[in-house]
Design a protein around this nucleic acid. Structure first.
Length: 589
RNA sequence: GCGCCCGUAGCUCAGCCGGACAGAGCAACGGAUUUCUAAUCCGUGGGUCGGGUGUUCGAGUCACCCCGGGCGCGCCA
């Protein structure tokens, strides 16, 4: 089937045609109206043209309308306000479109005309440090962007760029050799590794000899010393177990996992090439890249080899660029990494540009997670909150609520549902907000059953499922996001003929459903999953209003069938939309 | 000192490329239920969009300057 066009695209196309016919240049934008009083879509073209040509905008609008024929989609367009042209969709057009969506696996979302191969670098925990709440935004945001990009037809490679080779290993190894408590290691390996790391870190800041000893351990490790390599391997393995557990809870799956150690043997080559090409130079014993001609970076040089001969993360990040561009053949690289590293990535991208790497590099930043005190979220004792613990608490809290609301469910069901709700709540709290603003972590708010929360959206889906269970047609609206629905569903003509929209609640719900395809691609404009989240919230809202106003099962035919079809489509869009955010839907809750 | 981000209703937040009287949720108040799960819906009150100047037919949105908060700035990542 040919990719279907959204109402926005259809209208924009007709509008452009009308402008051409009227001898006017293409301009302005055709967008959703800000207020339902103005209809569904609006164009501000006449305002712009009126200004350019020093004519009355309303007159220009009237002129455009004489050559505009949108009768099959809308009521006659209206000129309003200063010269806006407003469009109100006809219910018949909405009906037809909604029926088309039901037959499209992608629910109307068009595949991109220019697919990219995108490496997405997100999560990236450090070995020997526990994953904590500070990692959640990168993981959740990166995963959602990956899902959306893939859904739009891009080729996505999710890369877990683990910090498994930094300076901290000098300390970990020194601590391992001098401070390790074998029993504690057996009890809780990661906690013990963290303990020795922290203690060594403290000691080395006050004792230069220990600091030097750590540096020696690091040099030995990097030179391939067997003993140190063994210790390193063991630490990485212990950390990975912790990471995997968190990924399982969050349902995160990486395509590749090339940590810093992966690039170790490429670092000398990187530095050599940059020296040879004149991009880097020697300075005070170190190899440094200066950006004398870039004002923002003029006084911010970048060290790529320390004066002790060691490499740092700038070096490995350049090696990483090389691998991603030359080996993985990526043309686009997204770094979902916190804002504090802006300067670092500016430097890396500038070096990459100078070295001739052709790719679209984006540093996708985000704000912090704060506690009630509006400061970086910490435990009572001032430690970072371990992510694993946080996610387990999410499940436990959700479990308690499920227990209260629906005590008759069997145990296994409760646990499964609680996980979907708890994890979904945590993810949604993050994704529903603009990524740059800091957000205040609040269990009560994210798990609330009303308001802009995951449980509210999940509940809309559950209500739909409940209707189908009652109707005895439970198979048409569930079972996994990727299931080939279009094939399973009753084919073709059934939908179009059975869909009859009469009530205003039905029509506005159907219009909302048609907007899904307009919203999803917008997310990648500026990496804003919150646009999709807000849309889904409004969709759930429209559905709940419909649910109140329009009985489904008790309605007489043909209304009953029509409303079932509308429920079916709503369920699919909700499930798919939440899936694009990495959130699962329960059948009951 | 330089650079980046944030400042919108009592609280938590939307408002991407400038467009129609600034929106939502929570909280407050008033209604609706022998339910297709009220885990919901309908309604009311509430804001000089941190402050100022400028650009524009039009500024929460763009530019510049201040104020307040956060973060970053050669050998940590």
């Amino acid at each position: 089937m040919l990719a279907m066009e959204t109402f926005q695209e259809l209208l924009a196309k007709k509008f452009a045609g009308a402008l051409a016919k009227a001898g006017l240049p293409e301009t302005g934008e055709l967008t959703l109206t800000s207020d339902p009083r103005f209809g569904d879509y609006q164009s501000n073209a006449a305002l712009i043209l009126g200004k350019q040509r020093r004519e009355n905008p309303r007159g220009v609008a009237a002129k455009i309308l004489t050559s505009l024929d949108v009768a099959e989609l809308c009521d006659p367009p209206q000129v309003a306000g200063a010269g806006f042209i407003n469009f109100t969709l006809r219910p018949e057009a909405v009906t037809t479109k909604a029926a088309e969506l039901l037959e499209d696996q992608k629910l109307g979302v068009a595949t991109t005309a220019s697919p990219n191969r995108i490496v997405i670098d997100f999560g990236s925990p450090n070995v020997a440090k526990p994953m904590h709440v500070g990692h959640i935004r990168s993981i959740v945001l990166g995963d959602a962007l990956a899902r959306i990009a893939r859904f739009l037809g891009h080729e996505v490679i999710r890369d877990n760029h683990i910090g498994d080779w930094g300076t901290q290993f000098g300390m970990v190894i020194w601590g391992w050799k001098n401070l390790l408590d074998q029993q504690a290691l057996a009890r809780d390996p990661l906690a013990e590794i963290v303990r020795i790391y922290k203690e060594t870190n403290e000691r080395s800041t006050i004792d230069p000899q220990i600091r030097e000893a750590c540096r020696q351990e690091l040099v030995k490790l990097q030179a391939g010393d067997k003993e140190n390599l063994d210790i390193w391997n063991e630490c990485v393995a212990f950390s990975m177990q912790d990471f995997e557990h968190v990924y399982e809870l969050l349902d995160i799956h990486y395509d590749i996992q090339c940590g810093e150690s992966f690039y170790n043997n490429r670092l000398p080559g990187v530095v050599e090439r940059l020296l040879k090409s004149g991009i880097a130079e020697m300075s005070e014993g170190a190899v440094v890249v200066f950006f004398r001609d870039v004002p923002a970076l003029a006084d911010k040089p970048c060290i790529i080899r320390k004066n002790d001969g060691g490499y740092n993360y700038a070096t490995s990040d350049i090696a990483t660029v090389d691998y991603r561009v030359n080996d993985l053949k990526a043309d686009t690289i997204w770094y979902v990494v916190g804002a504090p590293q802006i300067l670092h990535f500016k430097q890396i991208f500038e070096i990459a540009r100078r070295a001739g790497y052709q790719a679209d590099f984006r540093h996708i930043t985000f704000g912090s997670v704060l506690g009630d005190d509006r400061k970086l979220m910490k435990t009572r004792s001032g430690e970072n909150v371990p992510l694993r613990q946080l996610l387990e608490e999410a499940g436990a809290r959700a479990r308690k609520i499920v227990e209260e609301k629906n005590p008759d469910l069997i145990e296994q069901e409760k646990t499964e549902i609680a996980r979907k709700i708890g994890i979904g709540a945590v993810k949604y709290a993050d994704l529903s907000q603009y990524r740059m603003t800091d957000y205040i972590f609040s269990w009560d708010k994210m798990l609330a059953l009303q308001g802009n929360t995951a449980p509210y959206l999940q509940n809309a889906y559950v209500r739909i499922r409940s209707i189908f269970r009652k109707a005895g047609e439970a198979d048409s609206c569930s079972h996994g996001p990727m299931a080939g629905r279009a094939e399973d569903a009753p084919q073709g003509r059934g939908y179009k003929d059975s869909l009859v929209l009469a009530e205003s609640a039905e029509i506005s719900l159907a219009k909302r459903l048609c907007q899904f395809a307009e919203v999803v691609p917008q997310v990648l404009n500026d990496f804003r999953p919150n646009i999709l989240a807000n849309y889904l919230f409004e969709l759930a809202n429209s559905f709940h209003s419909f649910y109140e106003a329009c009985p489904v099962l008790k309605a007489p035919e043909p209304t009953r069938s029509s409303r079932l079809v509308l429920c079916e489509l709503t369920g699919r869009v909700l499930e798919r939309g939440l899936d694009l955010l990495g959130i699962k839907v329960p059948e009951k809750m």
